[in-house]
Computed example of a mutant assay.
Amino acid sequence: MNWLILSIAIIAEVIATSALKASEGFTRLLPSLLVAVGYSISFYCLSLTLKVIPVGVTYAIWSGVGVVLVSLAGWYLYGQALDLASVIGIALIVCGVMVLNLFGKMSVH
């Protein structure tokens, strides 16, 4: 259940971050509301997972998966280019999260 809540936190954060660009500096109402609601849901769910999953693991997964999904959302929604350096950087983030979870002593097994 904690992993489901963490997934909700990640999805809400990706929606909020994607809407942040569309809010145009909080001058557009609907995207601005999505930002506020999305981050509220994300931080609430993130706080729930911290009761069980160590903070380092939780944050690594939340931020790492979030970076990958926000990059893909930027590419899909806003036509932002993902060059080779971006793809390599994203792959390294994913590898880092995997190493932390699979081999780190603070991970939940």
Rank of each mutant, 00 (worst) to 15 (best):
V14H: 05
L30G: 04
I61S: 03
Y39T: 10
S86F: 03
A9G: 12
S40N: 02
V70G: 01
S7N: 06
L69P: 09
A73F: 05
G104A: 08
L82I: 09
L92P: 03
L6Y: 05
I15K: 01
S42V: 14
F103W: 13
F43D: 00
F103G: 03
S71P: 02
A85D: 05
T49A: 02
S86E: 09
L69D: 01
G64W: 02
L20D: 00
G96L: 09
N101R: 08
Y76S: 10
V87Y: 00
L29G: 00
N101G: 11
V37N: 03
Y59I: 14
T49Q: 12
I10G: 01
V97L: 07
L33N: 05
T27I: 06
K21C: 01
S86L: 03
S7G: 15
I10V: 14
L102C: 10
N101E: 03
G64E: 06
I93H: 07
T17A: 12
S7I: 13
L82H: 07
L48C: 10
Q80G: 00
V55F: 13
M98D: 01
T17H: 08
M98C: 14
Y44G: 02
S40Q: 01
A60P: 03
V14G: 06
L69S: 07
A19T: 10
L102G: 09
S107H: 08
L50I: 02
I53G: 01
L34N: 02
A16D: 08
L48F: 04
S40D: 04
V68R: 07
V14F: 11
C95Q: 06
L50A: 02
A85E: 05
Y76P: 00
T58D: 08
